[in-house]
């Protein structure tokens, strides 16, 4: 009897712990947890100095006042960034002019010239669609950290990263994260923001 009782108590405690540890079964991966957390509590991104494909200097905060669609890429990426680039091409065709696109590289080796390659490949034209790098390594690390972007070497000279389409609201807050191909999700969310 006490064996059964003790087992039921342990099972109950275990179930409660799993409920807590997975946000009620919603977040088994850190990616799911990140998206839930961002949607529930939008994060203000740090203001970082940027340079774009035309070598123009700007600040991330220059974008405040209107929503922005953001993605993190590196220009020599063979796979997922191409998906992201294609998703941005689709968005570029349908987004109103008031909603700019920003492809941010996390690769320190991406100078304006390489950013230009990426921009040409996908038909990105500043200022509506900027392909930009972050000036300062510390600022870059802080931005990635705040956004919850984890970049690891892929063992073949490139990187692997948790990719997504990011919606920044007019106050400079990262407010939603979508799958790399989920352009409809981004459009729906923008319609919702603009009412």
């Amino acid at each position: 009897m006490r064996a059964a009782l003790a087992t039921v108590v342990v099972a109950g405690l275990g179930a409660a712990t799993f409920w807590w540890g997975t946000e009620g079964g919603m977040a088994l991966t850190s990616e799911a947890a990140r998206r839930l957390d961002i949607a529930a509590a939008p994060r203000v991104l740090p203001d970082v100095p940027l340079y774009d494909q035309t070598s123009a200097k700007l600040q991330l905060s220059d974008y405040r006042g209107a929503p922005v669609v953001l993605e993190f890429i590196y220009t020599t990426c063979p796979d997922v960034c191409l998906t992201l680039g294609t998703a941005f091409e689709r968005l570029d065709a349908v987004l109103p002019p008031g909603v700019p696109l920003l492809s941010l590289s996390f690769d320190p080796a991406d100078g304006p010239r390489r950013l230009g390659w990426f921009a040409n490949r996908h038909g990105a034209e500043a200022p509506h669609w900027r392909v930009a790098g972050v000036e300062d390594p510390k600022a870059r690390a802080a931005l990635l950290e705040r956004a919850g972007v984890v970049v690891i070497p892929d063992g073949a000279g490139g990187f692997v990263h948790n990719a997504g389409l990011y919606l920044i609201d007019g106050k400079g807050r990262l407010s939603r994260v979508f799958d790399p191909e989920d352009t409809n999700g981004v459009l729906d969310a923008l319609l919702f923001i603009e009412g």
């Binding site: 064996a3 087992t7 712990t17 540890g21 997975t22 977040a27 088994l28 991966t29």
Partner: peptide, 22 residues
Amino acid sequence: NWTAPSALLAGALACVFWLIPR
């Protein structure tokens, strides 16, 4: 003897928790 099932269950659950990717 009576502690065996609950102890084994607790151990298994603790292992599984740290196997959650998150």
